[in-house]
């Protein structure tokens, strides 16, 4: 499954570890929330970067205060219909100030990429094997007008309209 980050297809350098089992000493790993809660001290003692994976029912407050410990937070969409990770993403960015990589994984489809990106997700583990950087750019460019602020930097029309007026 291609990983797209900053608009390019990149290799996934992370090892996604299970609930138990040994961790490689110097490779970046992500762990499920339960393991983080159980092995917090030993995970923090490692020298390699640490990431966490949240299922869709694990909401932002569960790790909000710890967000600074993670280089990557993976939000898993069990189905594209499960919209909880959108709220998780926004809260991590806007309320808990998470600045690391926010990655969507699972049932991640081209037609949801723009919504995800607007909610602050910046890496996409796309379900479609044929996903390319070009398709990603297209998905970002299809719509250029936005009606509400979110976690992205786009200025909503509610403000753009009046900037245009003020400049006249």
């Amino acid at each position: 499954m291609p990983l797209i980050k900053d608009g390019e297809v990149v290799a996934d350098v992370w090892m996604h570890a299970g609930d138990e089992g040994p961790l490689p000493p110097d490779q970046p790993v992500t762990v499920p929330l339960a393991r983080w809660q159980r092995e917090r001290a030993s995970l923090l003692a490692r020298s390699a970067p640490l990431g966490i994976r949240l299922t869709s029912d694990q909401l932002a407050p569960e790790i909000g205060a710890d967000a600074g410990h993670f280089a990557v937070i993976v939000l898993v969409f069990p189905s594209f219909r499960d919209g909880r990770p959108y709220s998780t993403a926004r809260l991590l960015r806007e309320r808990y100030g998470f600045r690391g990589e926010l990655r969507a994984s699972g049932d991640v489809l081209r037609d949801q990429l723009l919504f995800m990106q607007r909610c602050g997700i910046d890496a996409f583990d796309i379900a479609d094997k044929a996903a390319t950087a070009e398709a990603w750019r297209q998905a970002m460019a299809e719509i250029s007008v936005f009606y509400q602020p979110a976690s992205d930097q786009r200025v909503p029309v509610t403000r753009l309209r009046h900037r245009a007026r003020a400049a006249e």
Binding site: G83, Y86, S87, Q112, F115, C119, Y147, Q148
Partner: peptide, 14 residues
């Protein structure tokens, strides 16, 4: 109507 149009967070509600 405008605020809810393609709202990125609320397009996949329960």
């Amino acid at each position: 109507r405008q605020w809810s149009t393609l709202h990125p967070e609320f397009s996949f509600l329960p």
